[in-house]
Write a protein that binds this DNA or RNA. Structure first.
Lengths: 205, 205
DNA sequence: CTATAAAGATGAATGACTTCAACTTTTTTA
DNA sequence: TAAAAAAGTTGAAGTCATTCATCTTTATAG
């Protein structure tokens, strides 16, 4: 029970993921072949498939790491949201957006989102979706916090509103990564224009 | 200038698309090989690629036909929307949903959406998103119509609200096709729960 | 310590999309 | 009508993700 095997396994998985992060960023998802990852990680092609079901799963695993960071940043904001419904919502949303391109390219986002849609049954497809759910839950949490604080009408269905706001910001992010020419500023401005009217409507008069 | 060549080209393209509609529905997108389509359309594999850039483009072309129908059905509703903001919005949204599975399976939708995200630069990738835009515009049109009729507050930014509502219904539809177990009724109920509060907020008191 | 079993790594083989150089058909020119 | 040009078709070859029977390494049993 020395755990040698376990240690070797963990190490191989780590090396494969590390190779993926590096190569995908440098050359783009498409251009990277499994063989390239295997070579960099010093394993065989077959071994890559012992750790990840598909090439897409590897990408989603890298995206998941990034989203985890985004969620952590979101928690900070939830601890003490800015005053004003609109400001609080947009601070959270913009923090998502501002983090999004730190490690991942638009191409990587596109591919990952596409994979999560196309292969919802794979473990990492489910994982991506679960991350989405956690982001949506965070937005809902913020709405509830604003309600508790007395900024938002108490009779509002916070869950429905949180989901709606998240669906909007998520869909707008999708449009952003689809369009290489679209700037982060344009994304922010559009979402602000959509979110502010809602904020006004749900705020206590 | 007999147009024989033109006629033959149009006929081949039609035969390929027809084969795609039939085969994709019957066997599923994945299971159908380009060779199968070529065989049914009585052309060679290479010829299929003279008319469509990728296998995915063929699928998107079939989806586009369906969305065109959905848009037409939506126009009917716009001509005389039901009374009440909530009822009008949900009638339009449900008409989208009810049409969606008439010819296409969830798998086909998933694949098409994934492709449109992943390959935004291809002609049919652009085409899919143009259809999305037209659907969003239709929702916006409805909001404006309700405003003109005096059902919705005149000071509301109809464009922002229309986009937001569409983004929500689109994202919920994505969740629906991602999850094979989710029923059309569950989709309707969830979207209704999200749309009604908004409807109430934007309606004239 | 040796033998047996279990777990995991390996890479050649498979299968499907996509490409492309050669071939056919249609159109234009003379 | 015949030759030349243009347009389009063809399917074999190339590429890359994925699989699987075999081999190697690690763990366990005697």
């Amino acid at each position: 029970m020395s755990g040698l095997r376990e240690k070797q396994k963990a190490d191989r998985e780590r090396r494969i993921l590390q190779a993926a992060v590096t190569k995908f960023r440098a050359d783009g998802y498409r251009a990277v072949r499994i063989e390239d990852l295997a070579e960099m990680a010093e394993v065989s092609v077959g071994t890559v498939y012992n750790y990840y079901q598909t090439k897409g799963d590897i990408l989603i695993a890298t995206v998941a790491m990034e989203v985890e960071e985004v969620l952590t940043a979101g928690e900070q904001i939830l601890r003490d949201p800015p005053h004003g419904v609109s400001a609080a919502l947009l601070t959270l949303i913009f923090s998502y957006y501002d983090h999004s391109l730190e490690y991942l390219s638009k191409e990587m986002w596109r591919t990952a989102m596409a994979l999560a849609i196309e292969a919802p049954g794979t473990p990492n497809g489910r994982r991506y979706f679960e991350l989405d759910q956690r982001l949506a839950a965070q937005v809902t949490e913020l709405v509830i916090a604003l309600q508790d604080r007395g900024d938002v009408r108490p009779d509002l269905d916070a869950r429905a509103m949180g989901t709606l706001l998240f669906n909007n910001l998520n869909q707008m992010f999708l449009e952003f990564v689809r369009n290489d020419a679209m700037t982060l500023k344009a994304l922010r401005d559009q979402v602000a224009a959509q979110t502010r009217p809602i904020a006004q409507l749900i705020a206590v008069s």
